[in-house]
Design a protein around this nucleic acid. Structure first.
Lengths: 126, 126
DNA sequence: TTATCTATTGACAAACAGTCTATAGATAAA
DNA sequence: TTTATCTATAGACTGTTTGTCAATAGATAA
């Protein structure tokens, strides 16, 4: 994640669907499925799913979390201080768990679509 | 594809990344890789890659085609009348061919990311 | 003559993602 | 003890992408 650093975002590289809600949301919810986390932790944890988390602007994650809280997919409670402001801890709700399940199914279906496209492309190469 | 029909778009269903540029573009370019096509044909041909093409608004495709023409990934020429206005035929350019190649690689990488996410989810189920 | 099917376009709005900046507390370094 | 650095969160603003609606147009079938 970047903060106060320069050189970021879409500049230079393409990152197709990686930063879309449809992929980021399940990445975040999955982390909360394992354990409660605060935003910065979720951001750092994204490196398991993406490469170049350094180029990811933190505000995107915080914004998404607040949005998911409004939709009641997650709920937050006040965590401890660490080194800085009080942490906002997130916990997955029951609705969030079902939403994760649905997102997983959608991703499976999407993978199938990608596979079809790739195999058609391959068949035209020879 | 829908035209003058009601009941469409995001209403009702979710369609994760399916309608994103990152997926639609390679679907369209791949069709042109096989043979020259006009917009309506490309739209119809999408059913090979998506389900529910009926719910896809044609203007999205036409808009994308014009955009790709500006970027010189495709070029157009005037086709024959069929039953209606003159068809605008599209042909893949050399740049478009390389772009398709790159998109294919990106999709492969994305599939890998999906796989990772799915396997983590699965490992937590047991 | 009206309806339907093929075919394309443009305007407008809503959703989404990217960028920058501000704030804040704690600690390590100068 | 002041400055820099790291963790941590938030808000405003911009620009891009998608979705929606409606208009147009030629041909044919009812």
């Amino acid at each position: 994640m970047r903060n106060k650093r320069h050189g970021r975002g879409r500049r230079g590289q393409q990152h197709g669907q990686l930063r879309s809600k449809g992929f980021l949301q399940p990445c975040l919810l999955l982390q909360l499925y394992e354990k409660d986390c605060h935003g910065y932790e979720l951001l750092a944890g994204l490196e398991e799913f993406l490469d170049s988390v350094e180029e990811m602007d933190p505000s995107i994650i915080y914004r998404l979390m607040r949005e998911m809280e409004e939709k009641e997919l997650v709920e937050s409670y006040s965590g401890e201080y660490s080194r800085g402001p009080k942490r906002r801890m997130y916990r997955l709700t029951t609705a969030g768990r079902s939403y994760l399940q649905i997102s997983i199914e959608e991703l499976k279906q999407f993978r199938t679509k990608i596979d079809r496209l790739l195999s058609i492309y391959k068949s035209l190469q020879k």
